[in-house]
């Protein structure tokens, strides 16, 4: 059924639930997991109304900010690797508009399922950037599973979920 599951994560509680779904499904179907961390493209607008520095100072800021955001991304993906112990996990960090990047990445790696967290009020240790789920569903090359914020992905739920998918196929 699923061979390659793309999980987009920012390391928040909501995203961790999504991770659990992805891992559970991967176990159920024997799929591999592909973890993706998206750094928002509007990062550049942080400098915004800054005008008085020379380009050297601005570049130093950009380089610093970039490396900090990458560092955070690596941390999150590393945590995903630990979370998914026993399953093969590939990871990627991409910069861009979240929904677009997720869809593109799914296409590139030939994912047959995208898993993301539902909307939650809690904020990740990152630049605030919501994934437009509506947009993602529209442009994604494969089904999208949005982890419900209140529903814990217990073994039972995941099995239901898997059965649901299988039934849908039949």
């Amino acid at each position: 059924m699923f061979k390659r599951i793309l999980i987009a994560t920012h390391g928040t509680e909501g995203a961790k639930k999504a991770e659990s779904y992805a891992i559970g499904l991967a176990r159920a179907f024997g799929a591999e997991i592909h973890g993706l961390y998206v750094i928002h493209k509007d990062l550049g607008s942080l400098v915004g109304i800054e005008w008085l520095h020379n380009s050297h100072v601005r570049m130093e800021f950009y380089r610093h900010a970039e490396s900090e955001f990458y560092l955070r991304a690596e941390e999150v993906l590393e945590a995903l690797g630990e979370h998914a112990k026993g399953i093969e996990v590939a990871t990627a960090i991409r910069v861009g508009e979240p929904a677009e990047v997720i869809a593109e990445e799914a296409k590139d790696i030939g994912a047959d399922l995208i898993v993301i967290g539902g909307e939650s009020k809690e904020r990740s240790e990152e630049y605030k950037a919501k994934v437009s789920i509506k947009k993602l569903i529209k442009i994604a090359p494969c089904p999208v599973l949005v982890a419900h914020k209140n529903l814990m992905p217990s073994e039972k739920n995941i099995n239901h979920c898997a059965v649901g998918f299988l039934n849908g196929i039949k």
């Binding site: 400098v47 955070r72 990152e126």
Partner: peptide
């Protein structure tokens, strides 16, 4: 912008 690299601000701090 000038201070962030000096105090090693994290992404969240800058945001």
């Amino acid at each position: 912008v000038a201070a962030a690299p000096v105090v090693k601000a994290r992404g969240i701090d800058m945001a």
